[in-house]
Write a protein that binds this DNA or RNA. Structure first.
Lengths: 254, 254
DNA sequence: CGTGAACTTGACCACTGTCAACTTAAGTGG
DNA sequence: CCACTTAAGTTGACAGTGGTCAAGTTCACG
């Protein structure tokens, strides 16, 4: 289902990039044009991409959640990252040629379809945007490293607390939280696949967090009443999200 | 200790890049010049970088092994990747401004010190090399995803088998294996920190692998007598290493 | 109001961690 | 070249975090 989505309501991307880079007026306009590409919608649980796919275009999420995942041959699924509004789905396949993981919609999701050609043009014409896009990929890699630390060294309790804060922080950066609560479409099954735990144990652990008064999770809505204590309890340090900087911008990318 | 290492014995990088991109004569020369940058040596267990560092230059490994790692506040260490000859240490800090993880030498290691300025120049002057460098980063991210799958879903036996094959494959791509064996400086402790297992359990698991005739590991030398069976047993599929392609090269990077 | 997905809880169990002692290998200095 | 010393590897006994199985209950939604 192809529809036109001209209204650049898609603040998330511009908002995030603006926070970490100085975008010129021209950059923002080019971005808005990109976001205004033909869009497509997918329903929950639909795969936007499968491992091995050779992408025809690059997709940018305007609205909704998705996840990256990989599966073992026996069919066990590991979620390796969440894709939130303003995230690219397959920038890496753009360079590597094919997907090394799959992407599945979690909510109903709207993605802008960007042709490789228009991305090429954007990159050559707006080096600072190219720079910003690479930063996004690198931040992704940084989040994966933090997940490795979680899966390898943290307890179930810490893993889940940590993940909830990470998602909350990212949503906040995208302007999608309301006070200390936010929409939260993940099922306990999803949380299990992301944390390497069993659904049953996720449930038990969530109960713990609830009893401690650190997490309220009900009807697809998450509330973190005491972020500081939860961060403390789960060993969360925000550095790895590289949210603040405006650090180094170099070469063609400057 | 700064020494000059003019001889571009550093085949690994050129070899790997050549396998995935078409490098012009000029590209190779520029690369060789890069590799010929002043070098520095570090002894085993010495940290080449610490989380939080704001890198002064980019380091390229000519010789030796290192690992990327993160630690929890309680001091538990998770290795999130291995750095082999031909790998960059801190290409990501080049764009992100500061390290989100630490790097530690495993063997005695020699790294070329590349100034941001000369890297800037290389990138602008040789877009196809810039392209290739980004590919390396993306492949790194792909390996991290595979590690997440391992830590989250694979048994101890599979994790270790998988990791051994991954390292063997990467060394082979760098021209550093001899038949079915290679140098292997990791201790069981290192393997534990990389797989999220305890050293004791790594030991038990290696014994299993040895008894199955799939792994011989002695005196810092690894032999994989039956790679096919080991791959089968550990669910190893090489796709994620993106070793073969010469796929898409676009935009300025083309 | 019905039907399936998502969530809960309890009982049981096993993979892996911890602790501790010991053996072997590696590196150092006399 | 051999004591000495420390790191690395090995093994056994025991414990625990988290997995599995299975039976509910609640929720979402047509």
């Amino acid at each position: 289902m192809i529809v036109n989505a001209p209204e650049a309501l898609d603040m998330p991307l511009i908002r995030r990039l603006g926070a970490s880079c100085d975008l010129t007026q021209a950059d923002e306009e080019a971005l808005a044009r990109l976001i205004g590409s033909p869009a497509r919608e997918f329903s929950p649980r639909h795969d936007l991409a499968r491992e091995g796919d050779t992408g025809r275009h690059v997709r940018l999420v305007g609205d909704g959640w998705a996840c990256r995942y990989k599966s073992t041959l026996e069919g066990k699924r590991q979620i390796v990252g969440f894709i939130l509004p303003g995230d690219f789905c397959d920038l890496s396949a753009y360079l590597l040629g094919h997907m090394d993981h799959s992407i599945s919609a979690i909510t109903r999701i709207r993605v802008a379809l960007i042709t490789p050609e228009s991305l090429d043009a954007l990159i050559t014409g707006h080096p600072s945007l190219a720079n910003a896009f690479w930063r996004l990929e690198l931040i992704n890699a940084s989040m994966q490293r933090e997940w490795l630390l979680s899966l390898g060294q943290r307890t179930a309790y810490e893993r889940i607390g940590h993940l909830l804060i990470e998602l909350f922080s990212r949503l906040r950066a995208a302007g999608l939280v309301d006070g200390n609560s936010c929409a939260f479409p993940l099922t306990q099954n999803d949380l299990a696949d992301a944390t390497g735990l069993s659904p049953v144990h996720v449930n038990r652990t969530l109960r713990e967090l609830r009893l401690q008064g650190l997490v309220e999770l009900d009807r697809k809505r998450l509330r973190l009443p005491d972020l500081a204590t939860l961060a403390e309890a789960s060993g969360f340090l925000p550095n790895y999200l590289h949210a603040d900087p405006k650090e180094r911008h170099v070469g063609v990318y400057a």
